[in-house]
Simulated assay, not measured.
Amino acid sequence: MTRYGFLGPETTFTHQALLQALEARESTGTRTPPEQLQLVPVSTVAAAAADLIAGDLDALMAPIENSVEGGVSGTLDVLAATDAITIVAEQVVPITFVLAAREPMALDQVESVASHPHAQAQVQGWLRTHLPDARIDAASSTAAAARDLAFCAPEDALGRTAVCSPLAAEHFGLHVLAHGIEDTVGAQTRFVLVQREGRIPARTGADRTTIVIKLAHDRAGALLEALELFNANGVNLSRIESRPTGDALGRYSFSIDVEGHLEDRRVQAALRDLHRVCPAVHFLGSYPRFDGTSSRAREGFEDSAYDTAVEWVRQLSSLIEPPQ
């Protein structure tokens, strides 16, 4: 039995991402029979990561980046806190929201709106315009907001609504009061599939590598120095975010996505250089990009260029006379 954790309950965007990942595996001929799959809803990424490390889960799907809100701090912090888990795949899910209720009602009858804080942030413009007097309540997920509304007592459902996905509204039998209420049309969330530390997926030519680095806090220009190492090796960054280390004010680690795979010579060289100058470099994984975009190396940074340079230095070194 293979156990996959996801932020529950069913019909969350994380659940959708996991279903996408399982479909993608099936399309590549690595299908797991349904009777050997167990999809396990979890309450938080931190709790699920602990279950993953303990062996109670075999993999975990978690949100890492939203096109509107940026990095998902809870996931970034969990990934940075342990060396025992590795990202092996990613999925991207389009994000659209509806306003749902137990029974049909006019918008001027809405008294409260429940949803996850990330979802609230993505519909705040619509809420201010259409429901300026409604109370905003936090929920652990968009699906949990829909579920709690669906199963509450009828008298408690009066005036209550939930911001959730169309799938959640349909699944829990809610009435949709408004469609497409997100402020940014075309928003997306990127999710990562995480497993206990193990083998790294082979290079595909369209890959992403995720790392976390800590900088020397007492050296001016430490961040610039680290970034220049990427540039010196022709490695492009697609995301960089700072997160507090938690041990003192003003101390931060940096979560970074780079284009390329650990097998790429330019990525290897950049990681070696970072390892020399950074107090800590935490490798989180090299894995295929969801969009299949090729991470083509600039001229002079192809694998062959690095191999040629290594051979040139080896030949030069062979000319060194032995010490007398």
Rank of each mutant, 00 (worst) to 15 (best):
residue 18 L to R: 01
residue 81 A to I: 02
residue 124 Q to Y: 04
residue 11 T to D: 07
residue 197 E to K: 12
residue 59 A to V: 05
residue 50 A to T: 15
residue 210 T to K: 01
residue 233 N to V: 00
residue 136 I to A: 05
residue 289 R to W: 06
residue 11 T to A: 09
residue 143 A to Y: 07
residue 287 Y to D: 07
residue 104 P to V: 10
residue 179 H to P: 06
residue 163 V to E: 13
residue 318 S to N: 14
residue 236 N to H: 01
residue 157 A to V: 15
residue 168 A to W: 03
residue 114 A to L: 06
residue 289 R to N: 02
residue 52 L to W: 06
residue 291 D to H: 01
residue 244 P to R: 10
residue 102 R to D: 12
residue 127 L to Y: 02
residue 48 A to V: 10
residue 324 Q to D: 11
residue 251 R to N: 10
residue 73 S to L: 15
residue 295 S to D: 05
residue 38 Q to M: 13
residue 244 P to V: 12
residue 177 L to H: 11
residue 317 S to A: 15
residue 24 A to C: 02
residue 323 P to Q: 13
residue 182 E to Q: 14
residue 314 R to H: 08
residue 152 C to A: 13
residue 79 L to I: 12
residue 81 A to H: 11
residue 285 G to V: 10
residue 28 T to W: 03
residue 250 G to E: 03
residue 26 E to V: 04
residue 208 R to W: 03
residue 219 R to D: 05
residue 183 D to F: 08
residue 32 T to N: 11
residue 75 T to D: 09
residue 131 L to Y: 00
residue 271 L to G: 01
residue 218 D to T: 12
residue 264 D to C: 03
residue 275 H to C: 01
residue 203 R to F: 04
residue 243 R to P: 03
residue 254 F to N: 04
residue 53 I to W: 01
residue 298 R to S: 02
residue 143 A to E: 10
residue 288 P to N: 06
residue 136 I to G: 02
residue 168 A to E: 08
residue 17 A to G: 13
residue 227 L to C: 10
residue 252 Y to R: 12
residue 207 D to S: 04
residue 25 R to M: 10
residue 102 R to K: 15
residue 176 V to F: 11
residue 286 S to Q: 03
residue 247 D to W: 09
residue 137 D to Q: 09
residue 272 R to M: 04
residue 76 L to N: 04
residue 144 A to T: 13
residue 130 H to V: 11
residue 155 E to I: 07
residue 102 R to S: 14
residue 55 G to K: 04
residue 273 D to Y: 00
residue 195 Q to P: 06
residue 294 S to N: 02
residue 279 P to G: 05
residue 54 A to I: 07
residue 177 L to K: 12
residue 284 L to P: 10
residue 282 H to T: 05
residue 323 P to Y: 10
residue 322 P to H: 11
residue 48 A to K: 04
residue 2 T to K: 11
residue 148 D to M: 13
residue 125 G to Q: 07
residue 64 I to T: 09
residue 76 L to M: 15
residue 183 D to C: 05
residue 73 S to D: 15
residue 166 P to A: 09
residue 294 S to D: 03
